[in-house]
């Protein structure tokens, strides 16, 4: 299944990956200083993410709690695939060449890229 996480939703996922489950109020408190988002914005995004299946909601308590359903690795893999097909027309080798040429590639980086390519 394709994981669709927008740039704004990614910020919420980051908060949840750091610590979950969290309530809407807690998430807003973390994000508002840097993004300026209101409670309404966070509520709307959480609702969409629940519908998409990227997070789950536990409404057994008075305050709903949200938990991520995809891991950071799974979401990162999906984004990398998108990046590859967007910039390098799906060819991971081109990305590797680019990174090697620019001298930005470490051993760990290379291993991660190879993992992505295997999963693809």
């Amino acid at each position: 299944m394709s994981i669709q996480v927008t740039e704004a939703e990614w910020k919420i996922m980051e908060v949840l990956w750091d610590h979950a489950p969290r309530t809407m109020t807690e998430i807003t408190a973390v994000l508002s200083p840097t993004t300026g988002w209101t409670r309404h914005t966070v509520i709307t995004l959480l609702k969409r993410m629940v519908e998409k299946g990227t997070i789950s909601v536990d409404d057994s308590d008075r305050a709903k709690k949200y938990t991520p359903l995809v891991t950071r690795e799974e979401a990162s893999t999906e984004e990398t695939h998108k990046f590859l097909s967007h910039i390098f027309k799906g060819k991971a080798s081109l990305l590797v060449n680019q990174l090697v040429d620019s001298g930005d590639l470490t051993a760990d980086d290379l291993q991660q890229i190879l993992d992505v390519m295997r999963k693809k």
Binding site: A8, K11, T35, G36, L45
Partner: peptide, 8 residues
């Protein structure tokens, strides 16, 4: 229409 992801 303003992207929600735009930095303040």
């Amino acid at each position: 229409a303003l992207p929600l992801s735009a930095a303040p």
